[in-house]
Amino acid sequence: MSLTAHIPSHRKPRRSASKVALRAGVAGGVLSTIGVAGAAGPANAEPVTATIEMPTITADLANTVAVSAEATQQVAHAYDLQAQQDEAAAKAAKAAKKDKAEAERKAEAEAKRKAEEAAKKKAAQEAAEKAAAEERASRSSERTTLSASASVGSSSSSASSPVATGSAAAVVAFARAQVGDAYVMGSTGPNSWDCSGLVQAAFRQAGIDLPRVSGAQSSLGTSVSVDSLQPGDILYWGSRSNSYHVAVYVGDGKYVGAQNPSTGVVERSLSYDMPTGAVRVL
């Protein structure tokens, strides 16, 4: 009689191949143990009739094993993800440190450039101010010299060539001292003029207050012919009392006037731009 004849059947519904294989392995091991024991016992031993309960792998145990394996995988995945995040954070920190250093270097270079530009501008401004001061001093000296020359000339006038004397000499000297100044519409000095502003300032040196505009200036005094001019006469262009330009006659067929923005204050011959007429207020 077979040793397994009295082992009760524990058949259950069909399970997966892995569970069946596992069960078969356990049963085979038990049967082998029983077979060996039977072979080693006495020949007249009674047949084994005890029922042996086989261990059963339940669905709960299988689920527990599966859940444990899944949990292990999740933990491993979490460690891997944390490692990736740590590496990314380290790279980001390194890049940020590099960017900060570069930004600081650029800021320092920009600050240095601006400081150099400011120093250059300051030096240029100081040089310009020095040049302007020297120019003003030179003009002041020139005006003093011209005034002295006019005074000397008034004492040695000749009948053949009228020379500015007295108040006329002061007017002429002042007008000539402004030659080279800029022309600026509406300006009355000291370094830029328009035509009537220059004439008004020149006659102020002789103690005479003229109107501000050229039309009013040309309406004053006595009208004189261009052929009989004397130093200090006011020349005008246009019509008397409605002139558009004025200048000061300085003698020797010349005049001084603030011409236009391109020429500034100049001394020119009458033939350069013959005036319409003249008036004498001295």
Rank of each mutant, 00 (worst) to 15 (best):
166 G>R: 05
116 E>S: 15
221 G>W: 01
136 R>Q: 15
22 L>R: 12
125 Q>P: 00
121 K>Q: 14
133 A>N: 10
185 M>K: 12
214 S>E: 04
29 G>T: 15
135 E>D: 13
130 K>A: 15
180 G>R: 04
38 G>Q: 15
159 A>D: 15
36 V>G: 13
106 K>W: 07
250 V>W: 03
187 S>G: 10
161 S>Y: 14
249 Y>N: 07
181 D>K: 02
219 S>E: 08
141 S>G: 11
251 G>F: 06
157 S>L: 11
117 E>Y: 08
119 A>M: 12
154 S>A: 12
80 D>V: 10
181 D>N: 07
74 Q>F: 09
26 V>S: 03
103 A>S: 06
45 A>V: 06
202 A>I: 05
67 V>I: 15
135 E>N: 09
186 G>K: 12
25 G>A: 14
218 S>V: 05
174 F>Q: 10
252 D>F: 11
165 T>G: 12
222 T>H: 11
130 K>P: 03
213 V>Q: 03
6 H>D: 08
146 L>A: 03
55 P>F: 04
152 V>K: 15
281 V>W: 04
70 E>R: 14
254 K>E: 07
278 A>Y: 00
137 A>D: 12
253 G>R: 07
200 Q>N: 12
58 T>M: 08
51 T>R: 10
201 A>Y: 06
132 A>R: 08
253 G>H: 09
51 T>C: 02
220 L>H: 02
87 E>R: 06
44 N>Y: 03
197 G>M: 02
72 T>N: 11
144 T>I: 08
